[in-house]
Design a protein around this nucleic acid. Structure first.
Lengths: 129, 129
DNA sequence: CCTTGACCTTCCAGTAACTGGAGAGATTAG
DNA sequence: CTAATCTCTCCAGTTACTGGAAGGTCAAGG
């Protein structure tokens, strides 16, 4: 499977697949005689794994960790480690949600109190300045 | 006022103040004989304005726009323009909130269903892979 | 056999918004 | 006078890609 087929199968842009190979996250298992990266189903599964993990907001380094656990699945520590990483990420999401909520409320209040007409006085500017 | 005094007054790191000067966002009104950036109260107010706007998640380019409006406060269009920019930002926040909520729910479900013990089977890995 | 177009390669540069550090000059306190 | 603390500029690195140039490869059509 050439890179474009693999990228379609994984749901990632070709550039990204090449990038993941460059940073040794998911490498092509081999190269063709002319140097083309050649992917197999296992590599595609890893790419899908990384795509999904990225969609969950895991960083590349976290993906690398998770991928390591994914590949070592027969070892004992797997489940506990994965849960730890996912819980950490969940906590980050919850913090971000709170921040976003405060931000939302403050900005919504400002927008609501601003008439938005042609008058020069503006509560948003007044607050920010 | 030298840069470190200005940065303290504005609540920004020195490096950031210098950076804002470099990109012509908030320049030092003048330089000392030996080339030190010299700030006055007006410049500090602008730095505070930018800091607050950044805390609201406005991009540097949006800050530039808002700062332009802030400085032209006597012109008519100010209030409507500011409200437009702030409303756009509010809509972005709301989209982000929804995304974060879906993410949160999905990940929370996975974390909850994972026993996190020493068994090798892990629903999180199963889902991602 | 040749050409055309789609594909592939590497490498370089740019994105956003800083942050860190080197190397060198200025200022201030003791 | 010296040591510590500023300050300056410039360069590089961060994250996770993305875009593009220059050039090699491959399959199909004429």
């Amino acid at each position: 499977m050439n890179i474009s087929a693999a990228s379609k199968a994984a749901g990632l842009p070709v550039k990204t697949v090449r990038y993941y190979a460059d940073i040794n996250l998911v490498e092509a298992p081999c190269r063709s005689a002319s140097g083309y990266r050649t992917y197999d189903d296992i590599a595609v599964r890893k790419l899908v794994f990384v795509r999904r993990s990225r969609e969950f907001g895991f960083s590349i380094e976290e993906c690398r960790e998770l991928l390591g656990l994914y590949q070592d699945q027969d070892q004992d520590r797997t489940s506990a480690e994965v849960k730890r990483i996912a819980s950490k990420r969940l906590a980050e999401i919850e913090v971000k949600q709170q921040e976003l909520q405060s931000l939302h409320d403050a900005l919504a209040h400002l927008v609501k109190s601003c008439r938005g007409d042609n008058r020069p006085d503006c509560p948003i500017i007044d607050y920010l300045g």
